[in-house]
Design a protein around this nucleic acid. Structure first.
Lengths: 188, 188
DNA sequence: CAAATTACGTCAATGGTGCTGACCTATCTT
DNA sequence: AAGATAGGTCAGCACCATTGACGTAATTTG
């Protein structure tokens, strides 16, 4: 092709996109077929509303989701160490530090040196931290209970099994479920 | 009290936390009782793995979750306008702009002026954008299919109903589900 | 006992994703 | 001609995550 220099796509260009790859696509990806988008989209929208319930409360305290996650697991497993918390949250020590600093400074959480190993800083909620955690959980539980209002115990089993199967790749999650008895088959 | 000035909690202080609120709590919040933490935690861990599948692919392209969401909905509904996209994503025009700019510059998406209203910039995927979207969806679908491997069509109904009930507060989500036939009761 | 390891804290820099407010063009409507 | 609408963009800010490097105290190990 001779007139290349007149075009906006020079023969030798930094962008390796071929004309074929640039070709416009007008057909929508169908909802189900070889790929099924139903659960993908249900999950996306559902989780957004689920976190939104807590977000609006956290806003009043000047906190974000990261604070919520720390508060949650410290309240669900008081006395856990920093290392254990990092393992559950799957974040780095540096990511945790600022968030935890705020929660400590504002007396939602406190640290206690470990009994056997005094290097550890075991984390406990204060009454204030407990109260906020309960408030946040109640908000999320309201949505869950409303969504499950017409669900029989029978129908609860596949729902829990699905979520558990989605979650159980990571050892830290599997261990949490086992330790806290997160199941339906035997507990209800 | 006279010796107030010797204490770390002065009689008049900026921090309004009372000694009662500071009190340490050593009991764990129980898994179920008046509050049920099972679905809350299953949902948290499940969604983290779900998004993680796509995140590792996006990393290779220098993209994040915001790029994925835009790609997803443009591929699922080609020709949608900026306003429609903002309504579905529930973000601001300014938040979208950076992400969309990159996708346009790198030829994953392209804009076409509307036929009737030429102010509109209708969004379409390119072949390249379509290919990436399919790759991302396939990764997420693998996890979903594995999680549903032992699930009967019978058991699929309560799972979908639960997610749909969790998600359907917002009109934009309800309309999406209706328009794209996101359901199980009649389609399977 | 000295050395290595572990548990945790922190400083500095960076990136992704969201926000508000302000201001701009182009186009459509009235 | 005036106003409303669709969209773009700039500047600044907040939050949450990252990596890398360095420091301290306590425990473990040779």
């Amino acid at each position: 092709m001779v007139l290349t220099y007149l075009m906006d796509t020079p023969a030798v260009r930094s962008d390796p996109t071929s004309d074929e790859e640039r070709a416009i696509v007008r057909e929508a990806l169908p909802t189900h077929g070889s790929l099924d988008f139903r659960v993908i989209e249900l999950f996306f929208f559902a989780y957004r509303e689920f976190t939104g319930d807590a977000d609006s409360i956290l806003l009043r305290y000047g906190f974000g989701r990261a604070h919520h996650r720390v508060l949650h697991f410290v309240n669900r497993d008081p006395g856990l160490t920093i290392a254990e918390l990092l393992d559950i949250l799957q974040i780095t020590k540096q990511s945790l530090s600022r968030v935890l600093r705020q929660l400590l400074d504002e007396n939602f959480i406190c640290q206690v040196p470990g009994d056997e190993d005094r290097r550890q800083r075991r984390l406990y909620p204060t009454e204030k931290g407990r109260a906020l955690t309960v408030e946040l959980s109640e908000a999320q539980n309201r949505r869950i209970e409303a969504a499950l209002a017409k669900t029989s115990d029978e129908d609860m089993r596949p729902i829990a099994a699905f979520l558990k199967a989605m979650a159980s790749d990571r050892a830290s999650a599997r261990e949490w479920f086992a330790r806290k008895d997160i199941s339906w088959s035997d507990s209800e």
